[in-house]
């Protein structure tokens, strides 16, 4: 559908909303098709790996945090050898190749928040993310906007996520630019005393482990999200301008 828009004395068709394929996407397709032709793997293998990689999700990270909150000895192991601690909760960073995926190296550091220190992770170069624990990163984590602004204006960016911390709390940005992967171990919130590990895991959402949110006892990952009614719903009663709401 060709729409037009105007520039004062002239108008021209709007550019179609089609993103061009990047050189790297072309390269990936070319290498993949060559590998399939050469018999290194099949298209079915590739599909199965993609399906496996994309179903991981952040539940493993939530379980890790919940267990660290209730078990100080486990927390100590998380902070000294995080990859080994992951194996204790059934997450093996070596999957599926024996040495991890091609871009998830076997180096993980868990960053522990304290009442005076808050961590937040970013990869300014691209999209490094602890995928075996948290699954694929959210789209905004990979956006140039988040990547370039978080290092320069961390408090402004956190405020856009609704997280405002007092100046006395040190904000520590971790720019993941080499082979270490990072995850935040947030503070256990007041109001969660005597909870079971399963209950605690429910409030440790993905964003809490990136560091753009704090866990709250009243907010779970699978909560129903708030719905705001549209002020002018489609199919609602039509109002003439000036006739009031």
């Amino acid at each position: 559908m060709a729409q037009t828009h105007e520039h004062g004395d002239h108008s021209h068709p709007a550019a179609p909303m089609v993103e061009e394929i990047s050189d790297f996407e072309i390269l990936e397709i070319a290498v993949r098709e060559l590998a399939i032709e050469k018999g290194l793997f099949t298209a079915e293998d590739h599909r199965k790996f993609t399906e496996w990689a994309e179903q991981i999700g952040p539940a493993g990270g939530s379980r890790l945090v919940a267990k660290a909150w209730v078990d100080p000895a486990f927390k100590a192991r998380v902070l000294t050898d995080a990859v080994a601690a992951c194996r204790e909760i059934g997450i093996d960073w070596a999957e599926p190749t024996g040495q991890g995926t091609p871009s998830d190296y076997m180096e993980l550091r868990v960053l522990e928040d304290t009442p005076t220190l808050h961590h937040v992770i970013v990869c300014t170069l691209c999209s490094c993310y602890p995928r075996p624990l948290l699954g694929h990163s959210p789209y905004w984590y990979r956006s140039p906007n988040y990547r370039r602004r978080l290092v320069r204006w961390p408090r402004h960016v956190l405020a856009e996520f609704g997280l405002i911390l007092p100046p006395e709390v040190e904000i520590r940005v971790e720019d993941s630019n080499q082979k270490c992967r990072f995850m935040v171990l947030p503070l256990r919130p007041a109001g969660s005393e005597n909870w079971t590990e399963e209950q605690l895991a429910e409030i440790v959402t993905r964003d809490c482990m990136i560091g753009v949110a704090l866990p709250r006892p009243d907010r779970k990952a699978d909560d129903v999200r708030p719905v705001h009614q549209a002020s002018r719903p489609v199919g609602g009663e039509h109002h003439e301008p000036g006739s009031g709401p």
Partner: peptide, 21 residues
């Protein structure tokens, strides 16, 4: 220290870490 990385960074305590060879 963020103050060392960015001119006029307004918060005294904030830091940034990254990895280098």
């Amino acid at each position: 220290r963020q103050k060392d990385l960015w001119d006029g960074y307004p918060f005294e305590n904030d830091t940034l870490q990254t990895e280098l060879p």
